[in-house]
Nucleic acid binder design. Structure first.
Length: 218
DNA sequence: GCAAAGATTTGCT
DNA sequence: GCAAATCTTTGCC
C-alpha cells in the first residue's frame, strides 16, 4: 500500500476542482495521478501522471456524446462531477472520462495520455495479453485507448467515484513539492464530424514536452 | 429492424 | 500514408 512519509494515504483529488468550469478542471487534472488498485493478489498498483486531456462541454458541443441529450450510454455525463464515464470506441478501445461541472449540465474530460509512474509490469502485461507489440515505457499510455488498456479500464468502471479514496480506480493529487505543470491548449483531435466552431475550440490541454503525449493524427 | 459511423491504434504498402 | 480491425450506438425506414 502506497503511503506518504508520515503514514497518511495520498489524498484523492478535491472534487471542487472538477465542479467548476471544465477548462479550469482540465488544468487541475494535468499533473494529477491516475491510480488503479491491483485486480488480483500479487498484481501491482498502477499509477501515472496525467499529461493530456480534452474537454467536452455542454449539450451544445457537437463533438460531445451529450449532444443528443441523456441516453443509456452518456447519462453519467449529466450527473455530479468526479464520476467516471467509460465508453467503447471503434469496437475495441475503452476511453476514460472524468465528469465535470454540477448536474445536470453535461461535461467531461477525456483522459488522453498518462506518464506511467508505477506498475509498469502490469501495464506491459495488459498490452501483451491483448497481443500488441511492446513499446517504450513512456508510450504505454500515450493515447486515450492506450490509457484504458494500460490501466485495465472497461465500461464496468462507468459510475465509479474517482474522488473516493476507496475506489479501485481514482484520482490523487500530485505531491505538494511537485511544480504545477505548464499547460498548452490546442484544438481537439478526431472530431471532424462536429463542424465549426467545435473542431477549432482549443479544448485539448497538454503538458508540453512530456514524452507520453498522444500521437498526432495526420 | 437495419445500415452507417465512430472522442483509435496498428501494421503493411 | 492508408486501410483494417471490431462492435456499440445512433439514425432513419
Amino acid at each position: 500500500v502506497s503511503r506518504l512519509d508520515d503514514g497518511r494515504p495520498p489524498p484523492v483529488l478535491d472534487r471542487k476542482l472538477l465542479a467548476g468550469g471544465s477548462l479550469d478542471a482540465a488544468r487541475a487534472l494535468l499533473g494529477a495521478r491516475l491510480v488503479r488498485d491491483p485486480e488480483r493478489p500479487g498484481d501491482t498498483r498502477r499509477t501515472g501522471r496525467i499529461v493530456e486531456v480534452e474537454a467536452y462541454i455542454g449539450q451544445d458541443d457537437r463533438a460531445s456524446h451529450a449532444r443528443m441529450g441523456p441516453t443509456a450510454r452518456n447519462r453519467v455525463m449529466f450527473g455530479p462531477p468526479g464520476i467516471a464515464y467509460v465508453y467503447l470506441v471503434y469496437g475495441m478501445h475503452h476511453c476514460l472520462n472524468v465528469v465535470t461541472e454540477p448536474a445536470p449540465r453535461p461535461a467531461a474530460l477525456l483522459v488522453r495520455a498518462v506518464e506511467p509512474l508505477a506498475g509498469l509490469e502490469a501495464m506491459r502485461a495488459a498490452r501483451a495479453a491483448a497481443g500488441r507489440a511492446p513499446v517504450a515505457d513512456a508510450r504505454l499510455a500515450a493515447g486515450p485507448g492506450l490509457v484504458g488498456a494500460a490501466f485495465g479500464i472497461g465500461r464496468e468502471h462507468t459510475g465509479i467515484d474517482l474522488c473516493d479514496a476507496a475506489s479501485p480506480l481514482r484520482l490523487e493529487a500530485a505531491p505538494e513539492d511537485e511544480p504545477v505543470p505548464e499547460a498548452v491548449a490546442t484544438p481537439r483531435v478526431g472530431i471532424a464530424y462536429a463542424g465549426e466552431p467545435w473542431t477549432s475550440v482549443p479544448w485539448r490541454l497538454l503538458v508540453p514536452g512530456s514524452p507520453s503525449l498522444s500521437r498526432q493524427p495526420r
